Structure formats: C-alpha cells, structure tokens
Amino acid sequence: NQASVVANQLIPINTALTLVMMRAEVVTPMGIPAVDIPRLVSMQVNRAVPLGTTLMPDMVKGYA
C-alpha cells in the first residue's frame, strides 16, 4: 500500500504548505501520494484542512 499525504496540523485556507505540516500515512481512500511531498512545499491549500485529514489533489492549488 502506498502512503498518502496527511495533515500534521490544522492548515488554514490559503496557507502555503511546509514539510512540518505534512506526514506520510497509509490511508483509505488514497490521497496525494507521499512521494509528492517535496512538490507540495510552498503550494497553497484552497480550503482549511483539519489535523489528520488526507490531502486530495483538489485541495491544493496548482497540484492537479
């Protein structure tokens, strides 16, 4: 099973992602693959992402 990107903290809307905000976890359903974490750094979320939420492609501006 491939790990997905999960929020390590509450990420407010329009926040630029940093490594500290994300962790890799095997979850269902799968979200953004953990291998993409370096690519996500400095991209912004388009909604508030609660702690423990799996990041989906439509939550990150410019990802999809």
Rank of each mutant, 00 (worst) to 15 (best):
A3T: 11
S4R: 02
V35S: 13
M56H: 09
I32N: 01
S4C: 05
Q9M: 10
Q9D: 15
G62H: 13
P57E: 10
V35A: 11
I11V: 12
T53M: 12
L10V: 13
P29L: 14
T53L: 13
N14P: 02
R47W: 06
Q9W: 09
Y63S: 03
Y63C: 06
G31Y: 02
N8A: 15
L10K: 07
M22R: 00
L19A: 12
V41T: 13
M30H: 11
M22L: 14
S4M: 02
A3S: 13
R23E: 06
V27I: 07
L10D: 14
P12Y: 07
N14H: 11
L40H: 00
V45A: 08
V27G: 03
V26C: 15
A16L: 09
D58G: 11
K61T: 11
V27L: 11
Q44H: 07
R23D: 09
L10P: 09
P33S: 15
S42A: 14
T18N: 04
A7K: 00
K61N: 14
E25M: 04
Q2M: 13
S42V: 03
A7H: 01
L19V: 14
P38E: 09
P33C: 14
L17Q: 00
T18P: 00
M30Q: 12
A24S: 14
P57F: 07
P50A: 09
V35T: 15
A16Q: 15
Y63A: 05
I37E: 03
I13G: 09
G31V: 02
R39P: 03
R23F: 05
V5W: 02
M56I: 13
I32L: 08
R47D: 14
Y63L: 14
I37V: 11
V6I: 13
D36I: 05
R47N: 12
M59R: 03
V45S: 04
A48D: 15
P12K: 09
Q9G: 06
P57V: 09
G31R: 02
M22A: 01
R23Y: 04
N14M: 07
A7G: 03
A16V: 10
Y63I: 05
R47K: 13
T53W: 12
M30N: 13
R23M: 14
P12C: 07
M30A: 07
V45R: 00
G62F: 05
A16S: 14
R47E: 15
G31P: 00
L17T: 00
S4K: 02
R39Q: 04
S4V: 03
G31W: 02
A7N: 01
T18Q: 09
T53C: 04
V45G: 01
A64F: 06
V5A: 07
P12A: 10
L10G: 08
A16R: 05
N14W: 07
L10A: 06
T18H: 13
A64P: 13
P50L: 06
N8G: 15
V27Y: 03
K61A: 11
P38S: 12
G31C: 03
V6H: 02
V6R: 04
N46Q: 12
V49I: 11
L19G: 06
T15D: 04
V6P: 00
L55E: 00
K61I: 12
N46C: 04
G62S: 13
T15L: 04
L19R: 05
A64M: 14
T18E: 06
P50S: 13
G62P: 06
M59K: 02
A7R: 02
D36L: 04
V49R: 03
I32F: 03
M56T: 11
M21V: 04
R39L: 14
V49A: 05
A3M: 09
L19W: 05
T53V: 13
V35D: 11
N14Q: 07
V41H: 08
Q2T: 12
L10C: 15
S42G: 12
N46G: 14
Q9T: 11
Q2A: 15
V49C: 04
M56A: 14
N1C: 05
Q2V: 14
N8P: 02
L51W: 07
L10R: 10
S4A: 06
G31Q: 02
P33I: 09
N1M: 15
G62M: 13
G52M: 07
D58I: 05
V45W: 01
V26M: 13
L55P: 00
A64L: 15
A3W: 06
M56E: 10
L40E: 01
R23N: 10
V26W: 07
T18R: 06
L17P: 02
M22S: 00
P29H: 08
M30W: 04
S42F: 12
L17K: 00
R39W: 11
Q44W: 06
